Amino acid sequence: MEDLLTETVPAEDLKKFEKAYHEQLYKHDVTPKAQFEYAWCLVRSKYPADIKKGIFLLQELFRSHEEGQRDYLFYLAIGNARIKEYTKALKYVRSFLNIEPGNSQVMALETTIKKKMEKEGLVGMAVATGVVLAIGAAVGLGISVLSKKT
C-alpha cells in the first residue's frame, strides 16, 4: 500500500489526460470519466499543487456523480495522504469503509496512513524537543556568561 502513496504518474500519461480534459472543458462538456482520469493522474503527481488540483476535481465529482463515489473516495484518501493531510485522508477512508466495510485494500491504506501519522508525530515531537533543548542551552549559556561578568 505504501507504493500507492509514493507512486508518481508518468509525464506522458498526465499530458494525455490533461489534454483530453482541457479539450472537453473548452467545449463546456466535460465527462465524469475525463475529469476522473485527469484527477487520478494529478493525485499521483510529484507536485503538491497538482495533487491539490486533483483533490479539488475529485471532490467536485464526488458531489455531482453518485456512480463513481467509491473510486473518488479512494483517490481522495490517497491524494490527501500524499500531501500529509492525514486526518482528511482517514475521513475519506472511513467514508469508503462505510460503503464497503470489508475492502482489504482500503483497510491496508488506513493502516499505512496511521503508521505515517505515528512516525511523523514522533519525528515532530523529536524536533520540538530538540528546539526546546537548544533554547534551554542558549539560556543556560547566557546566564553562565552573565554570572562570570559579575
Rank of each mutant, 00 (worst) to 15 (best):
G121Q: 03
K33E: 15
V30S: 13
D29C: 07
I51L: 09
G142S: 04
E110G: 07
V131N: 03
A11G: 01
I78K: 02
E7C: 08
M107E: 12
G121W: 02
A128N: 08
D50T: 09
L61M: 11
E110L: 08
G124K: 05
R94E: 15
L97C: 06
K33A: 14
D50I: 10
K148A: 11
I55F: 02
L14K: 10
K53D: 11
A134I: 03
K84L: 08
G79T: 00
A39C: 13
I135F: 10
L109Y: 02
L5Q: 02
K149S: 06
S104F: 10
A138V: 07
T111S: 11
I55W: 01
V93I: 11
L109I: 00
P48Y: 08
L14V: 00
L90P: 00
K27R: 13
G121K: 04
E66S: 15
V106E: 05
K52E: 14
Q24V: 04
W40E: 12
Y47M: 13
M125D: 10
K119C: 00
W40K: 13
L76N: 03
S104Q: 13
A81G: 01
V106W: 03
T129N: 03
E118W: 06
M107A: 14
T111I: 04
K52F: 07
Y86W: 12
R94P: 00
Q35R: 07
K119Y: 01
Y72W: 03
S45I: 05
I55K: 02
E37A: 13
I78Y: 04
L4H: 10
K52N: 11
K149D: 05
V123C: 05
V127R: 08
I78D: 03
Y21T: 02
T87S: 11
P101D: 09
I99T: 07
V93T: 05
L122G: 03
Q69N: 14
R63Y: 14
F62M: 14
M1A: 09
T8F: 12
E100H: 09
A11E: 06
A39L: 13
L122P: 00
A126C: 01
T150M: 10
Q35L: 05
K148L: 10
V9N: 12
K16G: 07
S144Q: 06
F96P: 00
A49L: 12
L109V: 00
F62S: 15
K115A: 08
Q35K: 11
A128E: 09
S64G: 14
A34D: 15
S95I: 11
Y38K: 08
L90S: 01
G102A: 12
S104L: 13
F56A: 15
S45H: 06
S104R: 14
D3A: 11
V139T: 02
V132N: 04
L146A: 12
K88A: 07
S64R: 15
A108Y: 05
K33N: 14
